[in-house]
Nucleic acid binder design. Structure first.
Lengths: 158, 158
DNA sequence: ACTAAAATCACCCGAAAGTATGAGTGGAAA
DNA sequence: TTTCCACTCATACTTTCGGGTGATTTTAGT
């Protein structure tokens, strides 16, 4: 982070110094070849080219690499095993399911009603409803049964 | 592909034209403000700055984005034994579950609502309610989720 | 043909589930 | 510090579920 910033500053300073030096040189040349008055356009053109090149170089040096994200879906076989079950953390992360939501999902899968889940977690039934609603949205389902089914398929539940 | 190349060529041509135009303009200004002889350095500096900017702009325009591939594995469940499932007829008999009730149970397990099941079986929703009620009684459960769970445990559902 | 079980449907009612919206809190990250 | 997010709760409303009751029509079997 800071190292990168320092590098950039260093570059800019270097560039500035170079520019000053070049200006001096050009000025000097101006006096040397004052005779070639008609070569002014060439002179300007050279400067333009030079600084264009410098600009390109600068841009390449300073520009952050553009990042293009490509997300590929890969199919993977899963087998559900009732013993030593561990939830698929990847899918939990991908779907953005929070801890609490997952707890609600678990209790849901045990056939508990919203009220029973609320009692179990020591919260209001309204909270459970909120959780379940966002859960359904994240799982892209309409009912709790579908949510449970999908969760099992995704390895979120045993 | 070719479209991109064409774009680049077009850009270069545009840039060249712009450069020529600018050179002409500068030349003209040179005659207009010949008096301000001492402002030559400023003049050069302006050109340098201008073309540096142009160079940067060019570089940004022409640079290909560096592609960073991020591959996410999306896990897809593939059922272990979806084929050749046969319901446990013994348990169906023992519990006294009728064909129709079992059909309702199946559709229930797919997460369908009573109304949807009714549509599927071309009967009224009231009929489905009757079936589901007697199903719950026979399975000795209170909710459909529990019914599905129990049915799976008894081998009535895959 | 008689009968029992199964299947169909209806109506009502209360409970549960789900939707929509808003809002307060606390902790973590920028 | 501000901003963001998970979590919490509430209110109001709609839909779905499940229980209870009763009724008619098939279907199947001795």
């Amino acid at each position: 982070m800071t190292s990168r910033k320092f590098q950039q500053i260093k570059l800019v300073v270097l560039y500035g110094t170079g520019l000053a030096l070049l200006a001096f040189l050009l000025h000097w040349f101006e006096y040397r070849f004052l005779i070639m008055d008609h070569s002014f356009e060439v002179y300007i053109g050279a400067i333009a080219l030079l600084f264009t090149g410098l600009g390109i170089w600068l841009a390449i040096k300073l520009s952050k690499p553009k990042v293009e994200r490509i997300i590929l879906e890969k199919k993977v076989f899963i087998q559900t095993s009732p013993e030593n079950f561990t939830p698929d953390e990847d899918n939990l992360l991908i779907l953005g399911i929070s801890k609490r939501e997952w707890e609600v999902l678990q209790l849901m899968a045990q056939g508990l009603s919203n009220q029973e889940i609320a009692n179990q977690l020591f919260v209001s039934i309204n909270t459970i409803k909120t959780h379940s609603s966002s859960l359904f949205e994240k799982l892209d389902v309409k009912r709790r049964i579908q949510a449970i089914e999908k969760a099992k398929n995704l390895g979120l539940l045993p």
